[in-house]
Design a binder for these strands. Structure first.
Lengths: 360, 360
DNA sequence: TCCATTGATGCGACCGATCTCGTTGAAACG
DNA sequence: CGTTTCAACGAGATCGGTCGCATCAATGGA
């Protein structure tokens, strides 16, 4: 005891300040967190001591341990973290998450799940109060892991399961409405374009078997919706092409379809992203939309409204989904938490990318 | 002592498992974190005890306190969290941050700084190992706050300061090259369009005074670059219009410029986002780019390359900036940490949105 | 004058895990 | 057979705060 005040190697902590100021730890804590409870003179003394020791204020780590709550929620996505920023729909969704979190003063942690091992570790150790599970495909263990962690979580666009909350839309109905819209316009020859059906993209035509086994729930529901609409209209099965979400895959799809089915008059896409690629590529081929081909998307991202021509699409409230998910986790965990289902409405938005089929 | 195993109200912790298994806490810890160090039979005994107690594995909170490192870095932005997802350039930057973090197994925390009070609290309490300060405008206290917190941090696109690292590009040179490109094509009548010069957008013409006082360092440097290029070409000062980043503001700008300066042949924009809006609006007015007007941007976002026509712009490595920032924080904090400056290269990318001026 | 009330503080437990030592037992060695 | 060596494990300190409760002085009312 003697070299206590200067040239400390260790970080100075609450207890040091308390000792230096001759007060208890609790009082120092109060000075920083609830200054009103401390008399002015004592407060000044403590603040002075803190400053002279170079104390930076209560370390959040200690507070965390004691408080128990992190005040942040984790957003998990299958795949690399980048997909949070690369995909337009995901961005909208996250924008909603961000808005809701900010309103509640909570933070957001992006947790990656590139592979199973990393996912397991991250979900077990993320410093959060709950998880939003996104981009789920069947068979992955995210839900299991989240359950094991024992924190509240919400699965987005996922089959309802026992013991957890879900946010979703009616993908089946949306897809069916999209197809019906084109059928009503008089189209009879379609090409269905879908993004990844499995975690690994496989660019090429998709047969019924693969379509029904698509591990992404969303894909499966949408493809089924299209199929049922066609079937109800008395049409034979229409070709389905898996393009992925990138431009190249979509180009390959357009080429393949035009070569194999020259009668095609309409492209039905499981996402706006794919639909916009289709329009861009058709344009570069000198084909006009909607004069030569109708194109319909799904999602209702902002870029769709601003494209030339504006895209006809099934709008879904991506931002609202994000907000709803946060609400489920941070909201009053009153009664039936753990089995709630929030299904948000969708809506056909008529753009200028669809019209009656060309006469040939 | 008696009702110890069942119907526990409190959460079961490491110590409980240790007691139940008749081993020390350290051993239980090892079972979960370094199973190799524990003999098989003991490990099984511990695992069984853990399972029967419903122990979910080591709580990250305890680990954090002990370990000291959070293994996550915080990204701070001025303004609402949404801007992380709404702005294309910011997205690219974050994509780089994400990529680098993922490679190092670190997480990302989005911390918001909508107003000064929230910023102060969040920076003081965020559970991170360091900060990336983005979207900085002069006079805000982010840098100060980060310094006070005592964690490593990087300021992006900010004047070099003592005691902290900086990642930047040469905005002045980029702007000057952009203007020079148009001058070389023969343009003599310009309209400079800039996004926000202050935190609050003010749509309208900007005089020299306001331009030089722009609180966003980036804006100031770019505007100066344009001005010097015009001046060096012997031109009088060209009108500068603050449009903000939204479509409406840009439309107002185009209207104002066309009304006030019908001779204008080129739009020089401080961001691609603004430039793309200009093209869209001109198109809707029936004006052609580049036949009637040349438009040049700044940033080199992906949307610029895919626009019709492809945008001529100053490309900056947004993703690289994000990666560099992470590297500065997570990399070896060897020697000169705290004053390093990383300046990344820029490059003029010729699209099809610029050509020689129309003859009138 | 005395008791009840209020406000300011101190005291000690606790949050949950991990790390550093030191101990123990058995195998290995000469 | 005594000693070295090493793996396996236990005990206790530590990480940095915050919370509940006890304490104590000052104030106010009867």
């Amino acid at each position: 005891m003697g070299e206590s005040s200067t040239s400390q190697n260790k970080t100075v902590k609450l207890a040091d300040v308390a000792r230096a100021a001759g007060v208890s730890q609790g009082t120092v804590s109060n000075v920083f967190n609830r200054p009103g409870l401390v008399s002015e003179q004592l407060r000044e003394r403590v603040e002075e001591a803190a400053k002279s020791l170079g104390y930076r204020g209560p370390d959040p780590r200690g507070r965390l341990l004691r408080a128990g709550r992190v005040n942040a929620i984790g957003v998990v996505t299958v795949g690399p973290l980048n997909c949070f920023f690369d995909d337009q729909y995901t961005r909208l969704f996250l924008s909603g998450v961000a808005k809701a979190c900010e309103a509640r003063g909570a933070g957001i942690s992006l947790v990656s799940a590139v592979d199973d091992e990393i996912a397991a570790w991250n979900i077990r150790t993320a410093l959060v109060d709950g998880f939003i599970l996104n981009c789920l495909n069947e068979g992955n263990m995210l839900v299991e892991l989240a359950e094991k962690r024992g924190l509240p979580f919400v699965a987005v666009d996922f089959p309802v399961g026992p013991g957890f909350d879900v946010v979703r839309i009616d993908d089946y109905r949306g897809a069916r409405e999209a197809a019906q819209h084109l059928l009503d316009l008089g189209h009879r020859h379609f090409a269905v374009f879908t993004f990844e059906t499995e975690k690994e993209v496989r660019v090429g035509f998709v047969d019924d078997v693969r379509a029904e086994r698509a591990s992404f729930e969303v894909v499966r529901r949408r493809l089924t919706g299209y199929r049922d609409a066609f079937r109800a209209a008395g049409l034979p099965p229409q070709p389905v092409f898996e393009t992925g979400s990138e431009f190249d895959g979509v180009c390959a799809g357009v080429d393949a379809v035009l070569a194999a089915n020259p009668d095609t008059t309409a492209f039905v896409c499981t996402s706006d992203r794919v639909a916009l690629h289709v329009i861009t590529y058709l344009h570069s081929l000198g084909r006009k939309v909607p004069e030569d081909f109708s194109v319909i998307g799904f999602d209702g991202i902002e870029e769709a409204a601003n494209s030339i021509p504006p895209l006809t699409t099934i709008y879904q409230p991506a931002i609202g989904k994000g907000e709803a998910a946060v609400e489920l986790i941070l909201g009053d965990k009153s009664d039936d938490a753990g089995g709630r289902v929030v299904e948000l409405p969708i809506e056909l938005v008529s753009g200028a990318s669809t019209s009656s089929p060309r006469k040939t």
